[in-house]
């Protein structure tokens, strides 16, 4: 009996020891990775001409594009680490101007003031925002002005647009969304939107429009599927071709921002050159955008 108890105690102690041990590797992980890169670095100059870290920072809308870039660039330049943090276009531009990151990311064109401060615009991709309605809706084409009026609450019934006599359910994203920011800015309804429903993801917007014949919503062109219909805007249907040639109006550029007069590190320069080249077109397409350089 005594033996049993001691065994049981021993077992529980061993268990708790195992638990503690389980914590240990996790804690030492972060220290592992730097030491790995350290061991790699001495080998770099002999093997590959370029190594280093590229820090990018900015638009959360560019997360998909950046993830595709990171994945592919790792193969092209194994010794270059591309870091991305999504902090918002504004902070990305500020950070590159302050010199805290190599490349800033903005999901909008730069303003004249920003350019005056030395920000340089490198458009790597174009992102179309599609306006989607339920397949049951008979309206198929809208003007940008009509879309603006729907979103600011001037037009509230589909019959005003030649559709059925039904109230319009205005669907949008949450206030922090990059797609919402882009849409409202392009259409010219910033801070004036009267939403019926707001959702925290593009998928929910599509789902809501697909399930409600009265609904209108917006989503990244790449996220549009068969469950909804993307309306023609000013007579132009959204597609990669119409976004690339600029005829589809509701679109925004994805910009890699650099600072005038500041030389990029070799690694950052190689990364930017690659991202701006036709070689990156596949990654841009995979992320649901259109490459202007293809």
């Amino acid at each position: 009996m005594k033996l049993n108890k001691i065994l049981a105690l021993g077992a529980s102690l061993a268990l708790s020891a195992a638990l503690l041990a389980g914590c240990a590797p996790a804690a030492s992980d972060p220290t592992d990775t730097p030491s790995n890169t350290q061991t790699q670095q001495p080998a770099d100059p002999t093997e590959a001409p370029i190594s280093g870290t590229v820090n990018t920072d900015g638009s959360t809308s560019m997360a998909d594009v950046m993830a595709a870039f990171q994945e592919s660039f790792e193969v092209i330049q194994p010794d270059v680490t591309v870091n991305y943090s999504g902090t918002g276009s504004g902070s990305g531009i500020t950070n590159v101007l302050n010199g805290t990151v190599d490349i800033g990311l903005a999901s909008r064109a730069l303003t004249d003031e920003e350019k005056a401060e030395g920000a340089v615009e490198n458009i790597v991709a174009l992102d179309g925002v599609a306006v989607v309605i339920n397949p049951a809706n008979t309206v198929t084409s809208l003007t940008v002005e009509q879309i603006a009026q729907i979103y600011n609450g001037t037009i509230t019934n589909w019959s005003e647009l030649g559709g059925a006599d039904a109230p319009i359910a205005v669907i949008g994203r949450d206030a922090a969304s990059g797609t919402r920011g882009a849409f409202e800015e392009i259409v010219g309804v910033e801070d004036q939107c009267v939403y019926t429903n707001e959702y925290e993801s593009t998928g929910e917007v599509i789902g809501s429009v697909a399930g409600n014949p009265n609904a209108i919503g917006y989503a990244s062109l790449s996220a549009v599927d068969d469950s909804v219909v993307a309306v023609e805007v000013n007579g132009v249907a959204p597609s990669e071709a119409t976004v690339a040639d600029g005829t589809y109006e509701i679109q925004r550029p994805f910009v890699m921002v650099t600072k005038e007069g500041t030389e990029l590190s070799p690694a950052a320069q190689v990364f930017l050159d690659w991202a701006m080249s036709a070689d990156a077109a596949d990654e841009i397409e995979a992320a649901g955008c259109v490459s202007p350089n293809a």
């Binding site: 918002g88 922090a176 969304s177 990059g178 707001e198 925290e200």
Partner: peptide
Amino acid sequence: IAVELAYSSGLQ
């Protein structure tokens, strides 16, 4: 909280 947290920043 849930709707806005993901992309929020600063005072928001």
